[in-house]
Amino acid sequence: MALSALQRDPAGGGRFASAVPEPCRRLPCALGVDEAGRGPVLGPMVYAICYCPVDKLEQLEALGVADSKTLSEAERERRFGLLEAAGDWVGWALQVLPPDHISACMQQRAKYNLNELSHDTATELIQFALDSGVQVAQVLVDTVGPAEKYEAKLRQRFPGLGVTVRPKADALFPVVSAASICAKVARDRAVLHWNFVEDLGDPDRDYGSGYPNDPKTKEWLRRNLEPVFGFPRLVRFSWGTAQALLRDRGVPVRWADEDPPEDPPAPPSVLSYFARSPPRRPPHRFFQERSLRPLAEL
Amino acid sequence: PAQWVLIAPEAALDPPKKPDSEPLFTKLRNPSTGEATLYLFNSGAQQLFEVKAFHEECRSWFIGQTVQQDGRLLFVTPMDPLFLILYYLIKADKEQQGKFQPLDQVVLDSEYPSCPLLLKCADVKQYIQHVTEEKEIGSQKFHKYSQEKTLKWLKKKVNQTVKALKSNNISVGERVLASTLINSKQITDAQEDYVRYAHGLISEYIPEDLSKELLKY
């Protein structure tokens, strides 16, 4: 099964791809890009490309890949099965971004926000297709953000390719819709088969839709919040929902490089300027350099 | 906290040979600052150890399956008890105008009841001659602080410290040099730098007036 490697270790993320069909190496192809799992507070985000020769686009549409958002999970699985069966002329590739990777990017010192991560992932997948020998002629991309800037960026990156970026592109272009199906199926399977790397016994998987406003998801988060360690790696710690719960129910943790507290320190007492005892000599630099201090008590 | 993380030599933690003589953490008068400072006597108070904490801001411990807010790492290292005894010898010398006295009447401190244990440490009664003049009347010994002998003894301590600094490649120059930077030029710290640094370290263990005398010496 094409996604069996992903199902064995969803937490590991990574790239998964079909073999490049032989016609795609000879004939000009349309390549669609879409994503799944941008909004949920748990699970990976998946970027997918799907491509086929331009003269096979009508056949692709006939597989029923249009309007993927309206499909049930079972229907999506079925249509992914059809795409796999058409593997002699349809190819696909996925990049699975694990939730801890998303959180780390968003929270690291030099912030790498979700939009930048998304654009870079899409760009890398397109490049992967080119490097794998796919004769990409057109690139069609679904976007939630401003389309013009993203389109200009991709055109600059891939001169010589026709690039079209549109909101709701999955409803307009069958190859984007096919990519959407690949991404959604992959994400659904990753969440369903999630391997908790934490040794938590048998954690319940009743996480609802995974969206922050889903009461079932919120309840799951509350049940699975460990006060010192927070959540399992399935959860995106950088999401506002997760951060609020950690603030309210987690143990406070302070880091040396965090911003100073909002309240300024109290001004020193006037009496402190009239000290009776002479100022204490600082410790020898041998001890200062090594952060070694005497103790008055344990 | 109910537990601490501590690195100590085995001698500090040897089991007691007699009941009621376990290792003892106790406060004694710091000879340099005069303030209460934590020390350790091993079983039977044979040896004295100073206790220092490696203490950086924003540190905690995982110890087994617990978390401990207090992120200090304690170090216990052997210490020459004469450094602590010196304070009382100097004080007695000032107060009693240079009278010879028995040690157990000198090394007393109402604020630090463990103070007499300093005299139980191995070989103290023998090595006390490094810092005092001694008289024997009958079977009893009497001691009087000797600055001259003390400075000679401290000079040996400084020289030993200089050797240890060199053999451990401790940078003692006035320049600030991060230990993680490797300097391509061969820069040798001057002997004076070593002596000043060692004097500074020894001064952490003696009263300030004595430190000034030692610097001149």
Binding site: E198, D199, L200, E226, P227, V228, F229, V251, P252, V253, R254, W255, A256 | P1, V5, E57, C58, R59, S60, W61, F62, G64, Q65, T66, V67, Q68, Q69, D70, G71, L73
Partner: peptide
């Protein structure tokens, strides 16, 4: 030894979340 201050003393499922490595 942690590079942060966890403001709590008590049990923590360390083995569940961390793997010790030399």
């Amino acid at each position: 030894l942690l590079p942060c201050c966890v403001q709590h003393d008590g049990p923590a499922p360390v083995a569940a979340f961390l793997r010790a490595r030399p």
